[in-house]
Amino acid sequence: MSADYTTTITVAATPQQAYDAISDVSGWWGRITGRTTAVGDEFVYVVPGLHYSGFRVTELEPGRRIAWLVTGSHVDFVDDKQEWNGTTVRFGIEPTDAGTAVTFTHEGLTPEGECYGACSNAWSMFVNGSLKTFIETGQGTPYLFAGDEALTGDDHEELHRQVRESIAAR
């Protein structure tokens, strides 16, 4: 079996600044519903008509690491719509001479999975581009929605409810 998708960025920031920026998911990835500030918190990320996933925060060590378990997902463009279920997204944060290294790993996202090509490309865009810029400048390029694909708070709450129900049904 191949390795999980991993990428590392080096940022001109302290480990705590990197940690704080990663925790502000809406600032670099896109609109979420829920919370990301304590172990056990849950949140939902949505790309209308393409992908949604629910996460539970499983590790938080300020300035050092963050981990989120994918508790439920629907990836519309692959046969196994729940391919992300049970995978874990991790951020390792280490000080370096050049600033801070952030190692992103999506455990369970491997080349054998149907989503690997598109999903690893998307993660590369968000982590290597948006997150890096967000950490260094406070201005990321998260996925934003407008017009017909814009979601209301009620839309997000409904998707969050669906993820919780799919977990409970297991």
Rank of each mutant, 00 (worst) to 15 (best):
E112K: 01
H51T: 09
Y45I: 13
G117L: 02
V89A: 10
D24T: 10
V127I: 12
Q16S: 10
G117N: 07
G49N: 15
G99Y: 06
T14N: 02
S26P: 15
D154V: 06
V89C: 07
Q162S: 09
T88K: 02
E165K: 14
S120P: 03
F77P: 06
K132Y: 04
Y45M: 07
T87E: 14
T133M: 07
A168Y: 01
D97L: 05
A118I: 09
V75R: 01
L144P: 03
G108P: 09
T88E: 14
W123I: 08
G30P: 12
Y143T: 04
V75T: 09
L144Q: 13
G54M: 00
Q16G: 02
D4T: 13
S73G: 05
T14Q: 12
L159K: 09
L144S: 14
I135W: 03
A98C: 02
V47T: 13
T6E: 05
V39M: 07
T152S: 11
V57N: 09
Q139A: 08
R31L: 03
L50E: 05
S130W: 03
L131G: 05
I32P: 13
S23W: 11
E114C: 03
S73V: 09
V163D: 00
D80A: 10
A118H: 12
S26M: 04
T58S: 09
R56W: 01
F145R: 00
T36P: 04
F43W: 09
C115S: 13
T105A: 02
S26R: 06
R31N: 10
T96M: 01
E157P: 06
L69D: 15
D155L: 06
T137E: 05
D4K: 03
K132M: 09
S2A: 15
D80F: 00
T7K: 01
I32N: 08
G30V: 04
F145N: 07
L50V: 07
G113M: 02
Y5Q: 00
F91Q: 04
A12D: 13
V47S: 11
S53A: 13
I167L: 06
L109H: 04
R164G: 08
L50Y: 14
L151K: 12
F145I: 02
D76M: 14
Q82T: 15
P62Q: 15
S166G: 03
I22P: 07
S23Q: 11
A12N: 04
T37G: 12
C119S: 05
A38T: 08
F126L: 05
T6W: 05
T14S: 15
R65M: 10
I66Q: 06
Y143R: 08
G117P: 11
V25Q: 01
E59N: 10
A122R: 05
H106F: 09
V70C: 15
F145K: 07
G34S: 02
A3D: 05
I93T: 03
A18L: 00
A13K: 01
G153N: 13
A18K: 13
V89I: 12
G40E: 00
Y5G: 10
N121D: 07
T14C: 13
S26I: 01
F43E: 05
D148N: 11
G40R: 05
E112A: 06
E165S: 12
G108F: 00
P15G: 12
D97E: 14
E61H: 11
I9G: 08
H51F: 14
L109V: 08
T105P: 14
H74K: 14
R64C: 05
T33F: 15
I66R: 12
